Simulated assay, not measured.
Amino acid sequence: MRQIVNTSNGGYEVLEVQEVADVEPESNEVVINVKASGLNFADILARKGQYPDGPSKPCVMGYEVSGVVGSVGDAINKEWLGKEVIATTRFKGQAEQVVVQESQLFEKPERLSFEEAAALPVNYLTAYILITVMGSLQSYESILIHNVGGGVGIAALDIARHIGAKTYGTASKRKHDFLADRGLDYAIDYRNKDWYEELMDLTNGRGVELITDPLGGKEWKRSYKALRATGRLGMFGISSASEGTGGGIGAMWSMLKTVLQMPIFHPLPLLGKNRGVFGVNLGHLWHEPKKAKIWMNQILKGVEEDWVNPHVDATFQFDQVAEAHRYIEERKNIGKVILRP
C-alpha cells in the first residue's frame, strides 16, 4: 500500500508518498481500505515541527478516514466486512489502509460521499465539544466563531445554528457570500478591519457569550476581552504560530513568539467578571472512547436530521499532498480539504 510520509521537519519537500507492505489486523482490529483521508491544520504544524503531540519523524499523519472494511480480526464481528465506514485514527490515517479498534469505527451515513464522511470526525467532534459539551451554548446566546470559513468553523456554524444562537464569524471577504448562504448572521472581514472593534459595534459594546478561538497568542487576550458576562472562551489551536512554509529555526521562533504573547488567566478576574476559559485538544481524548462515541453518534444523528452538512472545498490525490498543504496554509479553503489515495 501507499502512504504519505513526513520524512523530517520542513517545507513541502519533506512530504513523500512511499510504498509499504499491506497491513494485517490483530484479533481485535479492523483494516479499512481508505477512500478519503482528512487533512487538518495540525498536519501543517506537525510537518514544520510545531506540533508537540505529533509522532517523531519519519511518520504518517492523519486522524480521520472513510472507506470500506477489508478485513477483521478473529474477535471482531464479521458483519463489518464490506461495510462503508468512518473512523478516527491516532495518526497513520493518510494511507491506503489503516488499522483501527472497533471503538473507533462508525457506519458511514448513506447520504454522504466518502469525502464528506471523512470531513466529520475531527472538525465536528472538535466543534461539538467546544460548543455543546464545554461551551454550553444556549439558544438565547450569541457566539463568535473565529475562522468560520474553515473546517471547524463551518462545523461550529452548523451546530450553533441548530441550537438557535446568534452567530458572528471572522473570515476573509471572499468567503462572506458562501457563509451567508450557510446561515451566518454576521460576517466580519478580519483582514481589512479590526475584528474586535467590529464585533463590539455589532453587539452595542456587549460582546458575546461564547467564542471559539484557534488563533492563539495575543488573540486569546482580545477574545477574552470580547466576552459578555457569563461568557466563555474556548481555545483549540495556535494557528497564528504558523508563519512561512518551512520548518527549522524560523518555525520554532514563530512558535515561541506566539507562546510568549499568550495571556495568563488569573482566577480572581474570572470571578469578578463572571467569565470562563477552557481548552479543547481532541488528540488528548483517546482515553475517553465512550464519551467520544456518544458525541460522534450525536453528530451522525445530525446528519440524519440534515442539520450537519460537511462541506468539502477541495480534494487532492496523495501525490498532490504538497499542493494540499499549501492550499490550507494560504487560507484558500472554505471548509474541508480531503486527500484521496
Results as ranks from 00 to 15, higher is better:
Leu179Gly: 07
Gly62Asn: 03
Asp177Glu: 15
Ile32Met: 05
Lys173Trp: 01
Ala226Trp: 03
Glu84Ile: 00
Asn6Asp: 07
Ala46Asn: 02
Lys92Asp: 14
Asn192Met: 03
Trp295Leu: 08
Arg228Asn: 13
Gly150Thr: 07
Trp220Asn: 15
Val277Arg: 07
Gly183Ser: 11
Ile44Thr: 13
Thr315Ala: 10
Pro310Asp: 11
Ile238Gln: 14
Leu45Met: 15
Ala229Cys: 04
Ile294Leu: 13
Tyr190Gln: 08
Glu330Lys: 13
Gln261Leu: 08
Lys166Ile: 11
Leu260Gly: 01
Ala314Gly: 04
Gly207Thr: 11
Met134Ile: 09
Trp195Asp: 10
Phe316Val: 05
Gly231Gln: 01
Gly231Thr: 03
Ala229Val: 14
Lys173Gln: 15
Gly49Glu: 12
Val72Met: 09
Gly247Asp: 11
Glu19Ala: 12
Pro55Glu: 00
Ser223Gly: 00
Met61Ala: 04
Lys83Leu: 02
Val337Asp: 11
Tyr168Thr: 09
Ser239Pro: 02
Phe265Arg: 03
Ile32Val: 15
Ile159Met: 08
Pro214Leu: 06
Arg47Ser: 12
Gly247Asn: 11
Glu13Lys: 14
Leu268Ala: 10
Asn33Ile: 00
Ala156Ser: 15
Gly216Lys: 08
Ile76Tyr: 02
Gly10Arg: 08
Val337Thr: 14
Lys221Trp: 02
Arg206Ala: 11
Ala155Thr: 04
Ile44Val: 15
Ser240Asn: 14
Ile299Ala: 09
Gly62Cys: 13
Asp22Ile: 00
Pro121Thr: 03
Leu39Met: 14
Asn77Trp: 00
Thr126Pro: 07
Asn297Glu: 15
Glu198Tyr: 01
Met200Glu: 05
Leu202His: 09
Pro52Arg: 02
Leu15Trp: 07
Lys173Asp: 08
Ala292Leu: 13
Asn333Thr: 11
Val312Leu: 12
Ile163Pro: 12
Ile4Gly: 13
Ala165Ile: 02
His266Ser: 10
Asp181His: 13
Ile154Leu: 15
Ile238Lys: 00
Ala156Leu: 11
Leu202Asp: 06
Val17Pro: 04
Gly150Ile: 06
Arg340Gln: 12
Val20Asp: 01
Phe41Met: 05
Val148Asp: 08
Thr315Asn: 08
His162Thr: 05
Val259Asp: 00
Ile338Met: 14
Trp253Glu: 13
Gln138Pro: 04
His266Thr: 03
Glu24Val: 09
Ser37Gln: 09
Thr167Val: 11
Leu271Glu: 11
Lys108Ile: 06
Gly54Phe: 07
Gly302Tyr: 03
Thr315Val: 15
Leu270Pro: 02
Ser223Thr: 03
Val34Ile: 14
Ala127Cys: 12
Val259Met: 13
